[in-house]
Design a binder for these strands. Structure first.
Lengths: 109, 109
DNA sequence: CAGCATCCGGAACGATACTG
DNA sequence: CAGTATCGTTCCGGATGCTG
């Protein structure tokens, strides 16, 4: 998927959702933020992401897709807070479906 | 993700689900098969996949993950049918959640 | 602290030709 | 028909070093 033009343009709702969920970290980031707003380093630590570039990229894309907001506080040292939009919050239902599926049907093998 | 060892080994249910849904085509393949068993060429045509390699790879992985079965009929010409397992069928709930989310919250921008 | 710039390896995806 | 075998390209994800 193109890096900064991943707007949902697909006709199909499922494909639109896939455009957002694409990428290794998107779902995990959203899940993390469902627990409340987080700062850059908090996310990085929680998700065990080594490279800041990886996280920054995903956050920018999700912001651009309207899933989360990025708020910069002009302080020293700087503080940047990421928070889910309503659209991001409503992803909870999808996450719960995924969790239920992963739990019930994918218990070891 | 490794090509042929993508078994769900993660602790977390969501992460297990992600291990299966990874890859551009997995979800779309499952969705297609929710409409009933399909043959190789049918899937290829329906999903507009140019390269057979891409499709074969995904199918093998999903089979290995217990999402679908592959049945070979010893005929001439050969006939191979892909069909969802119970586990694959139960993915419908996740798909519906995704569709609802993509529909309600991602309608254009 | 929250990134940006840069470089890198590898995996995913894809096109094409060929086979049992 | 249903693949396999090859080859090529894109590009994501990650490591590292530096900066406002």
């Amino acid at each position: 998927m193109a890096v900064l033009d991943p707007r949902p343009t697909a006709e199909c709702p499922v494909e639109r959702a896939l455009l957002v969920l694409d990428g290794k970290w998107s779902v995990l980031i959203i899940r993390e933020l469902l627990g409340g707003p987080k700062r850059f380093t908090e996310l990085r630590k929680a998700l065990q992401i080594g490279s800041p570039k990886t996280l920054t990229e995903r956050l920018r894309i999700l912001e651009h897709q309207g899933v989360l907001t990025r708020t910069v506080y002009a302080e020293v040292p700087p503080r940047v807070v990421y928070e889910l939009t309503e659209r991001g919050q409503s992803f909870r239902s999808v996450l719960e479906a995924m969790a239920a599926w992963g739990d019930r049907d994918l218990t070891l093998r």
